[in-house]
Computed example of a mutant assay.
Amino acid sequence: MKTTTACAIGIATYAAGLAVGSQVIARRWRLTWGATSDEVTRTMPGDELLAEPDIVATRAIAIAAGPEQVWPWLVQLGPGRGGAYTYDWIENLLGLDMHSANTILPEFQSLSVGDAFTLGAKGPHMRVAILDPERTLVFASEDGRWVWAFGLYPAANGVRLVSRNRIATPDATVSTRLFNWLIMEPGSWVMERKMLLGIKERAEGRRWRNSRRSPGDRPAVCPR
């Protein structure tokens, strides 16, 4: 009996360790999706605005286009502007009023440091903290708990678009941190992955290439 009990405890301990380990590995993959090790460790403009974050996510994508073709899609980001190029229906379930543009909108191309928008009725107020045309765009929340940076870096066949989120949760309870780990972080990966792919497709000019639908129809998405 004692041997059986010890064996059962050993198996349970191993299974628990395996589950936790797999979650840790999956979490790192989600938080660094698409990014190289150099991109993950590289200091980016905006890092200094939140020196001790609790969560850092650095995600990236290669875009076969020049920075001048990517930049306009970045500067029109935001609710009531160009949207977020992700799953609008999910964003709008959360009350964010996002409608992703499929063209460059001239009225939203004159972004300046200090310009701000609010993510939803009760969401954070995001302000442009750093703007270096065709290189860097950094948003920071007015409460100082979120910094969202975009960097465009030269690559062999275009540019690398790197997105970094630095988030502080100093008042979070254990249950809140667990919720963030199991629900919010995977959700943010799903949405940001879609956003990066959406910017890539638009900047490369292939989002609805070869579509034969009429202008009033919903465009067909090219396969990846």
Rank of each mutant, 00 (worst) to 15 (best):
S163C: 08
R212G: 13
W189L: 11
V159N: 05
A35R: 07
D97P: 08
K200N: 05
P223R: 03
L74K: 05
S100V: 00
V190T: 11
I167E: 09
W189C: 13
T4K: 13
M126R: 00
V24Q: 10
I183K: 01
I55M: 08
R202Q: 06
L18N: 01
K200E: 01
P72V: 12
Y87Q: 05
P124G: 04
P79L: 01
P170G: 04
L161C: 06
T173R: 06
A220K: 13
C222T: 14
S141M: 03
K194V: 12
T169M: 15
G151R: 05
A156P: 10
D54H: 06
V138T: 11
N180G: 11
T36I: 08
M195K: 01
L94I: 03
D38G: 09
L111A: 01
E134T: 14
A65F: 12
F108M: 02
G83C: 01
G83T: 02
L96T: 07
E185Y: 14
A121E: 15
P154L: 04
V162D: 01
I90N: 02
Y153A: 06
E201R: 15
T173D: 10
T136D: 15
A6L: 15
G83Q: 02
D38L: 10
G10R: 02
P72G: 05
Y14K: 10
E91P: 05
W73H: 00
P124S: 05
K2P: 03
L119K: 00
R193D: 12
I11V: 15
A51G: 12
Q69Y: 10
G17I: 08
S100Q: 04
I183V: 15
W181F: 15
E201V: 10
R212Q: 13
L161G: 04
A116G: 01
L77M: 12
V221L: 14
A57N: 09
P154E: 02
E185A: 03
V190K: 04
I199C: 10
G10N: 05
R42L: 14
V24H: 03
P72K: 00
M98P: 10
L119C: 03
A12N: 03
S141E: 07
G78A: 04
I183D: 02
G66E: 15
L93D: 03
I167C: 10
A64R: 11
G82P: 11
A203K: 07
P124R: 06
S163A: 09
M1K: 00
Q76W: 06
I61Y: 03
E142C: 11
Q69C: 08
T176K: 14
R164D: 01
R207Q: 14
T58D: 02
L105K: 04
H125V: 14
G78I: 02
T36A: 00
A84S: 12
R28C: 12
G158I: 06
D143F: 00
E134Q: 08
T13V: 11
A140F: 11
V128E: 01
A26L: 12
V56C: 04
A64G: 12
R30K: 06
W33K: 00
V174D: 13
W89T: 04
M1P: 06
Q109D: 04
W71K: 07
V174H: 05
P186H: 06
L49C: 07
Y87W: 07
L182R: 04
W33P: 01
L74D: 10
A156Y: 13
P106V: 06
V221K: 08
P215L: 02
P170C: 02
L111Q: 03
R209K: 14
A60P: 15
K194A: 13
L77F: 15
A172G: 09
N165C: 13
W71L: 07
R224H: 15
L96R: 02
S163V: 09
